[in-house]
Every structure is written in structure tokens, then in C-alpha cells.
């Protein structure tokens, strides 16, 4: 069981590393899905089977499919990957790398203070999650529903504009190229 955790953690890190470094967007997306699946396994090992299922269904499933659709609509070819390669000169990694190293150092310091507490012994089942969600967190659920509604309306509105009401000729060209 331990080995599962460390193995999937290693896979998650490696896949995420690939996501941010490859130049082809579709490949990056596939790596991202691998990373999410690895994290789902981590959830399972942590005793959160419900979270693991959600991670696969919603994250690796629904949200990633959304990305795939957009990628299809954009229809980025080899030229895009080449340009991407051009943007990725080695110098660009230094600043973010330093910041990330600082962040990791700080977090490591915090974790080191906490000591190595092992975690609990029982899995948290879907039933418990459901009871918590629709008990004390009900207001949060309502807010989340409002947020999703706003997202839906926003995406719908933005999508409608693309149909060429406001942008006019530019629109047409965009459509032909796409």
C-alpha cells in the first residue's frame, strides 16, 4: 500500500513536469490526464474513495474533455508546436524556478515543524461526505450552484458573441482559419 502511494506520487510529479515542459498542447493534455489519474490513486490510498471517483469522473473526465474540445476547435498544427518551442528558451525557466524553489522551501519548513504524524485509520466513505455536504455545508452547496450557474451563463454569453454578432468581419476570418 505504501509503495502504491509513493509510486503514484512519483508518476504524478513526472507527468506534471511533462505538462509544463512539452511544446505540443495535446501531449500536455494527455500528461495532465495521467497526472490527475495518479492523484486519484493517491486519494484512494488516503482513504478517500469518493474523492478518487470524483477526481476521475469530473477532473480527468469532464473538464479534460472540455479542453479536448477547445483544442479541436483551435486546430493547432505543427506550426503552433514549433512556435511554442521558440518561446521556450532556457532563460525563461529561471525566474519561475527560483520562485517555486522558495515556495517549496517555505512549505518544507512548515511541514518539518509539524512532525511526522501518521494519518487516521478509517476510510471516509461517500455517505459521510454526503451527510457533511448537505448538512453543515449546505450553504456552500447553494453558493457553488450559483457559481456554476454564473459560469454557465458566462460561457454561454461569450460563446454567443463568437457567432459573429459583435465582432463582424474579424469573426468571419477567424472562422475560416479555424
Amino acid at each position: 500500500m505504501e509503495i502504491t502511494f509513493y509510486l503514484s506520487a512519483a508518476i504524478a510529479i513526472a507527468a506534471t513536469l511533462m505538462v509544463i515542459t512539452v511544446s505540443n498542447a495535446t501531449h500536455a493534455l494527455l500528461y495532465l490526464i495521467v497526472s490527475l489519474l495518479a492523484v486519484a490513486i493517491v486519494f484512494f490510498v488516503l482513504g478517500a474513495p469518493f474523492a478518487a471517483a470524483l477526481e476521475i469522473i469530473i477532473y480527468a473526465g469532464a473538464i479534460m474533455v472540455l479542453f479536448v474540445f477547445v483544442m479541436m476547435m483551435l486546430n493547432l498544427g505543427k506550426a503552433a508546436a514549433a512556435r511554442e518551442q521558440g518561446w521556450l528558451n532556457p532563460g525563461i525557466w529561471t525566474g519561475p524556478g527560483v520562485l517555486a524553489a522558495l515556495l517549496l522551501a517555505e512549505l518544507a519548513y512548515i511541514f518539518a515543524q509539524g512532525g511526522d504524524t501518521p494519518w487516521g485509520t478509517a476510510a471516509v466513505t461517500a455517505k459521510e461526505v454526503g451527510i457533511a455536504l448537505f448538512g453543515p455545508y449546505l450553504l456552500g452547496v447553494e453558493l457553488a450552484s450559483l457559481l456554476l450557474l454564473a459560469g454557465l451563463v458566462g460561457a454561454c454569453h461569450l460563446g454567443w458573441n463568437q457567432a459573429g454578432i459583435e465582432t463582424g468581419h474579424e469573426e468571419e476570418r477567424g472562422h475560416e482559419n479555424g
Binding site: L99, L102, L103, E106, Y109, I110
Partner: peptide
């Protein structure tokens, strides 16, 4: 990161 630093 700076604020985290101060916090620690």
C-alpha cells in the same frame, strides 16, 4: 511567497 515568509 513574501507574505508566507513573513508569516513563518
Amino acid at each position: 511567497i513574501g507574505i508566507l515568509f513573513i508569516g513563518i
